[in-house]
Every structure is written in structure tokens, then in C-alpha cells.
């Protein structure tokens, strides 16, 4: 996965430079995207297999949540290019995302359905 650095110009073309996050350098990213997609496909296969394999309930939940988080992260970081964006966009997205996760956990704890 090639690392790219973000340039942060004060002025830029409204159209054509794609906000610098993607379009700053014209690399063909086809191979990188296909590699990510293959990983996503394999993880999905493992997820579905985990559903059908008779594991302990706690282990099944743990494995499925980890795999889901992995897929989520791969899409956000590589397909949405957040890995290559500046801190502003990372905070703008990860802040509400973290809050949403906290809300889900807090509500489940409040209603007594977090465990069991």
C-alpha cells in the first residue's frame, strides 16, 4: 500500500484537483484497490464461515466484531482515502464515529443487554 503525503495549499482549483487527498499525484491505484478488495472478500468468507461453524457464543461474537471492524477500516482507510487525508478530515469523521460507538454501548448497558 503506497503511502502518500498530503499537500495543503491555501488556494487550489475548485474542480480538478480532487481536494488534494486523492488527486495530488496521478498514480494508478488499480492494483492497490484490487489487493484491498481481495482481502475484503477473504474476510467476508471467514465471517460467513464463522457463522456456520459451531464456536462458543462469546468467541463467535468476538471474531465477528473484529472481522467487521477490519473490513470497515479497510474501506474507510483505502477506498475512502482517509489514511492519506489530513488531520481535519480524520477528526471530522472519527469523532462522530467514536461518539456513535459510545452511544450504542451506553444504550445497551443502560438497557441491560450488553452482556448475555
Amino acid at each position: 500500500m503506497a503511502e502518500r503525503t498530503e499537500s495543503r495549499p491555501v488556494r487550489h482549483q475548485a474542480a480538478g484537483e480532487a481536494g488534494k487527498g486523492v488527486g495530488a499525484e496521478l498514480h494508478d491505484l488499480t492494483a492497490e484497490y484490487i489487493r484491498v478488495a481481495v482481502v475484503l472478500a477473504v474476510v467476508t468468507l471467514i465471517e460467513v464461515a464463522t457463522y456456520y461453524v459451531a464456536l462458543a457464543r462469546g468467541l463467535t461474537i468476538g471474531v465477528l466484531l473484529v472481522l467487521s471492524a477490519l473490513k470497515f477500516s479497510l474501506v474507510v482507510l483505502y477506498f475512502m482515502h482517509l489514511k492519506f487525508e489530513g488531520r481535519l478530515l480524520k477528526y471530522v469523521f472519527s469523532g462522530p464515529l467514536l461518539l456513535a460507538v459510545v452511544v450504542v454501548i451506553a444504550l445497551m448497558a443502560l438497557f441491560g443487554v450488553l452482556i448475555g
Binding site: S7, R8, P9, V10, R11, H12, Q13, A14, A15, G19, K20, G21, G86, L88, L89, V92, F93, G95, P96, L97, L99, A100, V101, V103, V104
Partner: peptide, 29 residues
């Protein structure tokens, strides 16, 4: 399509979309 000033160096439309997606995290959350 002329150049326009942005204090962040990122196009306003792109920042707005990321803000919208942040709010959508809370909606679906």
C-alpha cells in the same frame, strides 16, 4: 469553476461531505 479560497486547503464540498458522513454515523448509530 474559478479558484476559490479555502482556509483548510481542502475543497469546501469535500469537507461538507465528510461532515455529513460524520452525522450519518450518529444517525445509523
Amino acid at each position: 469553476h474559478a479558484e476559490h479560497y479555502t482556509s483548510t486547503g481542502i475543497d469546501h464540498r469535500k469537507v461538507l461531505m465528510w461532515l455529513f458522513l460524520g452525522s450519518e454515523c450518529l444517525f445509523f448509530g
